[in-house]
């Protein structure tokens, strides 16, 4: 109990620290006291005020919430497949969402209507569900997780190929925007989007937390959960819908972000030394927040003024974690 409390305090402190660093650093450095003044006064008129309030803050909020949502989405998928090597990116769900958002963007240019946040989420959700359905179709035929992951990666490639095709032939004035987004970035963050994704992510978090008791018994196997009185079919449906909605929301606003969903729940379980969903769910969420804040900071600052795509950074840190997981599992099995 005590260990968990300490860890949650540390995670909170790390998040606060990362937020402060993210606000202060960038093409123009600002001191913390100036920032406090700007935020308190809501000063939109000065140059600095606009940078802080309209660019840096929404970007931080986006990185934090979408990072948390992504980690949670990964956790729910891992629960669903009863396997820690699962995540929205590796199973092709993020790419499916990306493809549908790209189509929506191209169509909106062609027909000249204004894209709204909810349309992007809706398109991404449809794309995510289609990719998920395919993954489920495969999983109902093949029991092997390895085959499933290869299929997911293949779906990811196909969707990315089609998206690239669309990006290549998209209208010139939109191409810059579309290109950045299709690689994954938090740079297009705005408060308008925040009004859309914060409620979705918050709802996903609450739904996941309220399911924690069932998530726990489901880890003992479908049959066991059923004999304890769990409506397994309904539970699986809710799991897949919530995780798809979360990863779709992330893809709609930030494009595909790799390795957060697969790696953060694992890190959460390892540092907590617990598999209790009531602790792992908030811990995964907070680690997702911290990881994306850190990655976004590095993406912005490492080669400034050139920005890296967010997945470039998350992959560098996330992939080794996943490889470590695989090696550890092999050892445990053998």
């Amino acid at each position: 109990m005590k260990r968990k409390t300490v860890l949650f305090i540390i995670m909170t402190a790390v998040i606060i620290l990362l937020v402060v660093i993210n606000i202060c650093t960038g093409s123009v450095s600002v001191s913390p006291s100036e920032i406090l003044h700007i935020i308190m006064s809501g000063d939109h008129d000065s140059y600095m005020g606009r940078i802080i309030l309209d660019i840096r803050l929404p970007r931080i909020v986006q990185a934090a919430f979408l990072g948390g949502g992504l980690a949670l989405s990964g956790y729910l998928l891992q629960t669903f497949f009863n396997n820690p090597i699962a995540g929205p990116y590796i199973l092709g769900i993020s790419s499916g969402a990306k493809l549908f958002v790209a189509i929506l963007m191209v169509v909106s240019v062609g027909y000249g209507f204004v894209l709204r946040s909810w349309m992007m989420v809706a398109a991404a959700f449809i794309g995510a569900l289609m990719a998920t359905s395919f993954v489920l179709l495969v999983s109902s035929r093949v029991r092997s997780m390895a085959v499933l992951i290869v299929c997911g990666v293949m779906i990811g490639y196909i969707c990315s190929a089609v998206t690239d095709f669309l990006v290549t032939f998209a209208d010139d004035n939109n191409i810059v925007n579309l290109h950045n987004w299709s690689l994954g970035t938090f740079s297009a963050a705005s408060w308008d989007d925040a009004v859309c994704y914060i409620p979705v992510v918050a709802a996903g978090f609450i739904a996941a937390f309220l399911m924690s008791k069932t998530i726990e018994v489901y880890a003992f196997g479908e049959d066991h959960a059923y004999t304890l009185g769990v409506n397994v079919k309904a539970f699986r449906l809710v799991l897949i819908l919530v995780s798809s909605l979360l990863s779709a929301t992330v893809a709609a606003f930030a494009g595909p972000v790799s390795f957060v969903g697969i790696a953060m729940p694992h890190v959460a379980r390892t540092v907590l030394r617990s598999s209790d969903p009531r602790a792992v769910i908030p811990a995964s969420f907070m680690l997702g927040m911290a990881f994306c804040l850190l990655s976004d900071m590095l993406a912005r600052s490492l080669f400034a003024p050139t920005e890296l795509s967010i997945s470039t950074v998350t992959a560098v840190f996330g992939a080794p974690i996943v490889i470590g997981m695989l090696l550890k599992r092999r050892r445990a099995d053998g």
Binding site: N82, A219, F220, G221, D223, H224, T227, R269, L272, R273, S274, S275
Partner: peptide, 11 residues
């Protein structure tokens, strides 16, 4: 019900 099963959960 107690079926033959392997519980994989860690921690």
């Amino acid at each position: 019900v107690m079926m033959t099963q392997r519980v994989a959960t860690k921690y």
